[in-house]
Amino acid sequence: MKTVFTTGEAAKICKVSQQTIIRCFDNGQLKGFRVPGSRFRRIPREALYKFMRDNGIPTDALESGKRKVLLVDDDVELLELIQKFLDEDGRFETRVAQNGFDAGMMVKEYHPDLIVLDVMLPDINGKEVCQRVRADSTLEDVRILCMSGMVEEDRIQELKLAGADDFIHKPFEVETLIERMCVQLDLETAAAA
């Protein structure tokens, strides 16, 4: 488990700007130290945890240290399968939704770092889910990776215009899926040993 964070990492975990973290660090609200021989700021886990609790910031992201992923697909078997792979990978915390409506509710409540979204859902289609997420300014840091069995190139372009960050065809190599997720989440692409 990570014990010391940079200001950038702390900003991501707290979902605030890096400037805010630096300001709080400099005025003493957020305890930490500077790397000997330089001016780089470092924040120990306990200090970050206390800071988050004191300021009412949800601490779950720090507690797990995992990236939050919302998997949306109407096919339970596929959801379970991807979940199994992601659990074994160990870097992701997952929740699942089986339709567009549930996905919309969970995006707000769970605030995932990434939505892995099947675009052919029984109710609201994926394009609309993308548009709704993009229309909500509180969700602007949420990345969207769409997946689908559809084969029409033009419709894939439409998805990207609607706000999807990436697209993967079904069937896919699960390794490729995870790599593409990592790119969206700024994670190292090779799974941590």
């Binding site: 096919d75 078997e77 596929l78 399968l81 991807i82 199994k84 792979f85 052919m120 689908s148 069995g149 559809m150 084969v151 029409e152 065809h169 079904k170 069937p171 896919f172 190599e173 699960v174 390794e175």
Partner: peptide
């Protein structure tokens, strides 16, 4: 083809995924 794309590629994803697993 558009319809089949969805109906067939989805189960394929599961078959292939289990194979990979």
């Amino acid at each position: 083809a558009a319809g089949a794309g969805h109906e067939i590629n989805n189960p394929l994803a599961i078959i292939s995924g289990h194979g990979q697993y």
